[in-house]
Design a protein around this nucleic acid. Structure first.
Lengths: 156, 156
DNA sequence: TTTGAAACATTTTATTC
DNA sequence: GAATAAAATGTTTCAAA
């Protein structure tokens, strides 16, 4: 099932199934079955295997934040005083719901985060009252996303 | 249905439903119904309304790229020669499957992209043979994500 | 808006090839 | 691996409250 570098072999049928479900997680297996000319049970079995392999990491409903009044997305590069305060800083960042992603990165900053706020004022509050107050955070650089033109998953 | 700033009013029941489905898009509506003590038909109707409002923007199967051998994620800040070449650059970026996100940003760069590659060598090829060759791209700054500790959607 | 019930469709499992 | 079939479960619609 797995090749020597621990990746998984998936064939063309697996790919077709995944491509359908990556676009619409609630697409009925039977509908996919009709589309690709294989029985629903066969697809069901393949999905169980893909799940067991860890390739399928679940499914999600996608929410449009704009409709909820969240229109300001930004990336924030964070400089930390000492490398040792990293895990502690992440713990604090986890408590801020506006923080959607957090990466340890090479380069200028210690950490790069993605935040989603209602507007610029909200973003300013999150910066000044939440992020800047975290122990070890010395400086930040903010990049507001004026528009997002690409948003997709890995191509299968 | 919508307040004067065009956001949507959702009540506690809507939130409960959404929280279930944001975690697992394939969770049966009837199961959610049993959990929150309301009929399946009621949930079905609420979901139709949420979908009509645009708040529900579909669903996705989530794939674990590591299992497919994609282990190097990076953010790349791109400097463009002239502002006018922006849309053309995005068009070229769309053709590169390793590019998962693309944002117009305030700050240093014109564009910030997120890329997913198999390894550092693959990343180098994408940088040198794909991104740097795009008309108008003058310089790039790469930040490799050594680890991602937070990855979530907006909190409902 | 909610419910319950009927009609319809899908999922899941066992069996067989 | 895949197909079929049967049982269990889920979805969808609608009339009534």
């Amino acid at each position: 099932m797995k090749s020597r570098n621990d990746t998984i072999k998936i064939d063309g049928i697996d790919k077709k199934i995944l491509r359908f479900l990556m676009k619409d997680a609630r697409k009925p297996v039977l509908e996919i079955a009709r589309n690709i000319g294989i029985s629903g049970a066969a697809i069901h079995q393949r999905l169980r295997k893909l799940e067991a392999s860890g390739l399928l990491a679940g499914s999600k409903f996608v929410i449009n934040p704009k409709v909820m009044g969240y229109t300001t997305m930004a990336y924030i590069g964070i400089f930390l005083d000492k490398a040792m305060s990293n895990p502690a800083a992440v713990k604090q960042l986890e408590k801020i719901p506006e923080v959607l992603e957090c990466h340890y990165t090479t380069g200028n900053w210690s950490i790069l985060i993605k935040v989603l706020c209602r507007d610029n004022e909200h973003l300013m509050q999150v910066l000044n009252k939440e992020i800047q107050r975290i122990e070890g955070v010395s400086r930040t650089e903010t990049f507001i996303s004026l528009a997002q033109q690409i948003d997709r998953q890995i191509t299968i």
